[in-house]
Design a protein around this nucleic acid. Structure first.
Lengths: 252, 252
DNA sequence: CGCATGCTTGACTGAACTCAAAGTCCGTGG
DNA sequence: CCACGGACTTTGAGTTCAGTCAAGCATGCG
């Protein structure tokens, strides 16, 4: 088990030396249904425990693209390790950051409807994903399967997160948005089993700003302001939250 | 069939006289699986056409609440007629408008995950909903059923819409947001079989502004500006789009 | 070392918010 | 019937917050 006080090692953004690139790519690894249920923190009922199914794992290096807009839908992915960024690119070329999926989050669910992915997913750190192939989800021959049910439960959860993120970008003041963003990040790290009071942000100021609909300078200024008030201590991407209550008060 | 040129009668916002309130409430109506598929514009495959299942209809008057935050999840709803507003209320009392569901849209999908609804849904006009009970979605005894598959297909579609809405509130200038909002409304009316060039908005300026994260005054000013430029003609909630190309150019 | 990327901070500007007033439409009650 | 009140909308004037532009620093990499 990982030390709760420490920051997840893969969440540091410097891409490590490529000593073992080839080894990684040929090193096939698998995850079972139970592991996926655990990662997703699924709390529903499973009818017959399906321990025979194995899912292929997929590794990504920081900066690599996991999914691209327009690609045909071939399955869902669960993040096993690392941090990513989902975004949509407009016709005019402007990028919009939708979310920052991390351990236990689901990717690719926007591809079910039109049978192709509608957003881009980029790895911010080295990542380890578990793929749930489309074939396992929609096999018409099978009976009502637990995998499908689990997947849809997880999709519903992602909707809820997305709605919160949407609401996130609607506070009146920019500093309040940044404060709320930090609180939510803290809660997510906590849910993943890491420390909620000390963590390393995997994304740039620019990505945060894009996600919150403010400029990167505004994000930087908000961080500095919260630091000067003694609410947080921030040094580049290292964040410590000194007073969660003060941070929460700052949101309104 | 409704005249394509005309505005849907239920989309006018004045609550009609209550001549037949009691009649409506005792007048039980039902919809079949085929009608729901048609409303949702489902284009996937259905294994065995399920024409025996009947869904109960639910009618609402303008201003009534369809779903409330915190209520236990009891099913999904498909809009058969009318327009609604989904919103989330923050701890500080601020409301945030997420979407304006209309004919063919799905409601209540955010309740699957935690087994309770997480957003409020209010009728903007008189509405006619079709309820798909939770029991029909998750009956463990049944085989893999088409209803469940259809529901999840529709949920995925709603995610896509929501992502677009999220992106909608991230244009640089407020007038561009309003222009994009109008284009999207136009496309939705078109998809529903109504005229894309002439329609009646079911929501207030305040609701539009809340959805786009601008003030109601800014929405009003943007409407006036687009009117003065000859791109649209707006009179209170009646909107005519005079040049769709110019409107689209205005978005960037 | 030089370069690229990311972060911070400052000064200035302008777009959108706030406050305010007036007009429109509607339903209701005198 | 008309007057009134309430909800919605429009428009104006002043202010403030966040965007833009710019400079400088830190870090990591080739």
């Amino acid at each position: 088990m990982m030390n709760v006080q420490s920051v997840p090692s893969a969440a540091r953004w410097q891409p490590t030396a490529r000593q073992s690139t080839l080894k990684l790519e040929t090193d096939e690894r698998w995850s079972d249904f139970k592991e996926v249920l655990g990662l997703l923190r699924f709390d529903g009922k499973v009818h017959e425990m399906n321990d025979t199914t194995l899912f292929r794992r997929r590794r990504l290096k920081a900066g690599q693209s996991a999914l691209c807009m327009g690609q045909p839908f071939d399955g869902l992915y669960v993040v096993r390790l690392g941090a990513l960024k989902t975004s949509m690119t407009h016709v005019d070329g402007a990028e919009h950051v939708l979310a920052f999926p991390m351990k236990g989050d689901l990717l690719g669910f926007d591809g079910v409807c039109k049978n192709k992915y509608l957003s881009e997913v980029t790895a911010l750190t080295d990542c380890d994903l578990i793929k749930i192939p489309a074939a396992d989800l929609f096999s018409p021959g099978r009976g009502c399967n637990d995998i499908e049910r689990m997947a849809y439960w997880a999709i519903s959860r992602e909707i809820v997160q997305e709605q919160s993120a949407y609401a996130l970008s609607h506070s009146a003041k920019s500093e309040a948005r940044v404060a709320r963003f930090l609180r939510i990040q803290s809660e997510r790290f906590n849910a993943m089993g890491y420390s909620p009071n000390r963590f390393t942000l995997p994304m740039t100021r620019r990505d945060i700003g894009n996600h919150l609909n403010v400029t990167l300078e505004t994000v930087s200024r908000a961080f500095s302001a919260l630091d000067n008030l003694g609410i947080i201590a921030v040094e580049r991407r290292e964040v410590r939250i000194l007073s969660m209550d003060a941070l929460r008060d700052f949101e309104s």
